[in-house]
Amino acid sequence: MQAKAKVKLSRSLGIALTPKAAKYMERRPYPPGQHGRGRKKESDYKNQLVEKQRLRAQYNISERQLRNAYAEAVRRTGKTGENLVSLLESRLDAFVLRAGFARTIYQARQFVNHGHFTVNGRKVDIASYRLKAGDFVQVRKKSRATTPFQLAAAGAWAGEVTPAYIESHLEGLIARFLAVPERKQIPVICDEQLIVEYYSK
């Protein structure tokens, strides 16, 4: 997805998916298009659909991937919506982003797919790989000298606060997934209950 398309998607969903989109939305905090500033009547279905699209966009996943994650969330004990977000947050590409190894979720997926990471010492190049509590994720030795990871080691992409479920050592380009996170710990913007209602129909 090109930069302009990401900005447009961000504006339509009301969330910044990239740093560039965040800057753009500060200047134009309304949806794109001729009627972006006007009020729109929104049905329950529309609200549910938007929340689903928001969650998909923040994890850069397909509809099929989200449906599969939802099906697993239903099978687990506890609240389905919270289970869903926790499952998605356990993906390797999401971890790479949160740990400060990548600037955006798009870049995180690209880095994983190109084989730049190991999990517990073994190369993993599947973005959807699900981490378990205690797993160590590290940038591979041959990748550490490249510019993106030198920037990461310097803290260029680290958030203001590292989530409590991640122990990150950027200088060494290694991080640990401490535990499957609770919903309140996960920095994604969505009302997961509306997503549950969408899929429950």
Rank of each mutant, 00 (worst) to 15 (best):
T162L: 04
A102M: 03
T104E: 07
A156L: 08
S128Q: 12
R130A: 10
I105Y: 09
R140A: 13
V188G: 05
E192G: 01
H114S: 05
K201S: 12
S62I: 06
N83E: 10
Q58F: 02
K52A: 07
R76P: 02
N83G: 09
V74L: 14
E197I: 06
S10E: 00
T162V: 15
L13R: 01
Y59T: 03
G134L: 09
A156S: 09
H169M: 12
V74H: 09
L87I: 15
Y30P: 01
V161K: 15
I186A: 07
Y106E: 14
A179E: 15
Y70W: 10
T18V: 00
G14N: 00
T118E: 13
A108S: 15
L97A: 05
R11G: 00
V161A: 12
S168L: 02
P148A: 10
I174M: 12
H35F: 14
V139T: 08
K201D: 13
G121L: 06
V7T: 04
D93P: 04
R37S: 05
V180F: 09
G78E: 09
P181T: 06
P187I: 09
P148G: 11
R183I: 14
R144V: 08
R64I: 09
T146M: 14
F101T: 00
G14E: 03
G100L: 07
P148Y: 06
S43R: 08
R91G: 07
V119D: 06
A154I: 04
A3Q: 14
A145H: 14
R144C: 13
A94K: 01
I174Y: 02
I186E: 02
Y30C: 00
R109I: 06
E42M: 13
Y199M: 13
S168V: 09
S90W: 00
Q185L: 09
G159D: 13
A158Q: 14
A152H: 11
V96H: 04
S128G: 12
R103W: 02
R122N: 06
E26Y: 11
Y106P: 00
G81I: 00
H169R: 15
K79N: 15
L84I: 04
A21D: 00
E42S: 15
N83H: 12
Q2D: 12
Q193Y: 13
Y24A: 09
